[in-house]
Design a protein around this nucleic acid. Structure first.
Length: 681
DNA sequence: ATAATAACGAGA
DNA sequence: CTCGTTATTATC
């Protein structure tokens, strides 16, 4: 750690004596570079990308050395850099450009994004790795497999794994698949929205795409929603790439291991990065491919300001680096559909014949309304068709997966008679029931919907959606006394289940892998998912159903999926016909009609009434901006700003500027700005 | 946080 | 009009 000895005698460096520095402060009005002099002694070590400390307004603050330049436009006297924290240029120039673009899109600051993009330094690790001959690969290149994570090592192929005997396995199951691999191998930049077949071993496909890219000498970034998916992808990459050619990045790693793997990428020792959302910023040199799996999962949304979404980070990255991009999932998000419809990406889908060979048989059966009144009785929620499917699978000595929603979903309001979700006549937001006796009101704009009548059937009667019971496992256990019952949920997630007859009750996202696939998959309490007070409730339901249904065996091997829901509603139709693309197109069309994201851009502003008023008085919003609210949000209030998609960047700029003025004035009531906030209750 | 600077007001 | 005190604002 360098330190200047005699400040009075310091001389600026001969060449490029000015360092442009991003100070690491979360203040919007300081979101620009500040110029400092580079002491001659550090002329060669103060390189762009390194961490520095500078005296800023009297105090020592951390900063990023962004650039070395010949002169400064600053009219005043420049201060010297105070310290070089480390000679390691941890901030890749391309990552810096990416971080700037992400900050701009999300109305945030560069410093905030850099905090997400670059892990904290670990001095000992830096030293140990630098000592390695050639300064290259550390002892544990960090193939993530190398990091033992207790209790989580399911085999790669376990989860709905591919049937090795399948004649049209691998990417050739998709007509455009081989061309995709060729394009990656040739160093071209294809962009695709991939609808994975049911039963697809997506980790193997992603690993193959990564291998094709890496073999062509270019880098790869693959992002998955959670640690369980990462374990699967890690194993697949180890198989496809061989040892030491990739690293897995996850929050669960300790600071040392995290930094070690980060350095392996930054120094170019490893070219393939896989991980959860923060890995979207991994400092992979010359990326040839970025990919995100299951982009509809809300785990891809970062929890820290400025709340960027991994899909958006990766797409921005693909755009900046002019590299290939792959957005994959069993289901398709409205955002992915938008990529297809704008022509930014191509569809990568199987033909119907292949789909028929691979898909389970899917049937929808309405729950008996008479029996459904008693939500505690699992048997009441199991129509005979579901009952029969489970029995048949168990008789064939195959496991049965039962998916039930998690408790605690917010009840929203829908029509008592036809169950169409009730929406605000003014802004199309969801209606909610007041806590104590008042009127039904919009959760977005707070308008009271007094004379509400269902647009579908004209009924004036409303009902709150009921959430299913949790006792499903016990109930089923009683119904099938000889069969072992396993549960997998938020508290205890099973990685995989043994082959053989068993009942597996799981909440969405916690479905264990079943080698050979499930004989039957039952999807229960579907109304609870469909009528959630969330703009994305239906899309999310389709995503979760498809993720569970994809674990079933193909129909020709007896695999059957029963969804206990009205077969007429579009989300159920999408599952029955296994048509993620068609459903996403419909969903996006609806959102266009209603002015919802991603067709429009929405930003939520949260703060005290005074703070919001002040903020909005300050902001010069674009012409098309529409204000909705305020509505109560916990102790504070929330407003939504809606603009046409094309005005998204202008809106972000305006909000960032307003935040800047307020932070400069030390405004007492902070306002939280969230672009593309997922929950728009 | 702190330092420079603008703004202000009381007393000559 | 000047000095001393206090708000304001920029921070290399």
């Amino acid at each position: 750690m360098a330190r200047t000895a005699e400040p009075a005698r310091r001389q600026p460096a001969d060449v490029l004596p000015v360092a442009r520095v991003c100070v690491d402060l979360p203040l919007a009005h300081l979101d620009r570079p500040f110029d400092y002099l580079v002491p001659a002694a550090w002329a060669d070590t103060a390189v762009p990308g390194t961490r520095v400390k500078v005296r800023f307004a009297g105090q020592l603050v951390d900063g990023w050395l962004l650039d070395r330049v010949a002169s400064s436009a600053h009219p005043g006297r420049l201060a010297y850099l105070d310290r070089l924290v480390s000679p390691e240029p941890v901030l890749d120039p391309a990552v810096r450009a990416l971080a700037r673009a992400v900050a701009d899109r999300y109305a945030g600051t560069l410093a905030d994004v850099l905090r997400l993009a670059v892990p904290p330094r670990h001095a000992r690790v830096e030293k140990e790795a630098a000592a390695t001959p050639g300064g290259a690969a550390p002892a544990t290149p960090g193939g993530a497999g190398a990091a033992p994570e207790p209790g989580s090592a399911p085999a790669a192929a376990a989860r709905g794994g591919p049937r090795p005997t399948d004649p049209d396995g691998g990417w050739s199951a998709y007509p455009a698949g081989p061309a995709l691999l060729r394009a990656l191998a040739d160093g071209r930049a294809p962009r695709a929205v991939w609808s994975a077949l049911p039963g697809e071993s997506w980790p193997d496909r992603l690993a193959e795409a990564a291998a094709a890219t890496a073999d062509a000498g270019r880098g790869v970034v693959l992002v998955v929603p959670d640690a369980r998916d990462l374990d699967l992808l890690d194993a697949a990459c180890a198989a496809a790439l061989g040892p030491g050619r990739h690293v897995a990045l996850t929050a669960a790693l300790g600071p040392a291991e995290r930094y070690r793997r980060f350095l392996a990428l930054r120094r170019g020792a490893v070219r393939v990065a896989i991980g959860t959302r923060a890995a979207a910023f991994a400092p992979v040199a010359d990326p040839g491919l970025v990919a995100v799996w299951d982009d509809g999962d809300d785990l891809h949304a970062e929890q820290r300001a400025p709340y960027p979404h991994a899909r958006e980070v990766l797409l921005t990255r693909a755009q900046l680096a002019d590299c290939a991009a792959l957005v994959g999932g069993y289901a398709r998000s409205a955002e992915a559909q938008l990529l297809v419809e704008t022509g930014w990406a191509r569809e990568l889908v199987a033909d119907r014949a292949t789909l028929r060979r691979r898909a389970p048989r899917v049937e929808a059966i309405g729950a008996d309304p008479q029996l459904a009144r008693d939500p505690a009785a699992a048997t009441a929620r199991l129509p005979s068709l579901a009952w029969d499917a489970a029995r048949a699978a168990l008789r064939a000595d195959a496991p049965v997966l039962v998916q039930v929603p998690r408790r605690g979903y917010l009840p929203s309001v829908s029509c008592q008679d036809c169950r169409t979700p009730a929406r605000c006549p003014h802004c199309q937001g969801p209606l909610g029931l007041p806590a104590a006796g008042g009127h039904t009101a919009c959760r977005w704009c707070a308008r009271v919907a007094a004379g509400y009548a269902c647009p579908a059937c004209g009924s004036r009667r409303l009902r709150a959606a009921v959430v299913g019971a949790r006792r499903t496992a016990e109930e089923l256990g009683r119904a099938f006394p000889d069969v072992p019952v396993r549960t997998s949920g938020r508290d205890e997630i099973l990685g995989a289940v043994d082959p053989g007859a068993a009942l597996v009750v799981a909440t969405p996202g916690a479905e264990p892998a079943a080698p050979g696939g499930y004989g039957a998959v039952l999807l229960l309490d579907t109304w609870a998912m469909l009528t959630r007070a969330d703009l994305r409730a239906a899309e999310e339901a389709v995503r979760r159903w498809m993720a569970a249904a994809a674990l079933a065996r193909p129909a020709r091997d007896g695999g059957q999926v029963v969804v206990v829901a009205d077969a007429q509603v579009p989300p159920v139709q999408a599952l029955v016909r296994w048509d993620p693309g068609g459903y996403a197109a419909r969903e996006l069309a609806d959102r266009r009609e209603l002015g919802f994201p991603p067709a429009a851009r929405m930003v939520s502003l949260t703060g005290t009434p005074a703070g919001l008023a002040e903020f909005l008085a300050q902001a010069r919003l674009p012409g098309s901006a529409e204000l909705l609210g305020p509505v109560p949000a916990g102790a504070a209030e929330r407003m939504l700003v809606r603009v046409r998609r094309a005005e998204g960047p202008a809106l972000a700029a305006a909000l960032h500027a307003a935040a800047g003025v307020r932070s400069a004035h030390k405004a007492p009531h902070p306002v939280r700005v969230q672009v593309d906030a997922l929950e728009l209750l």
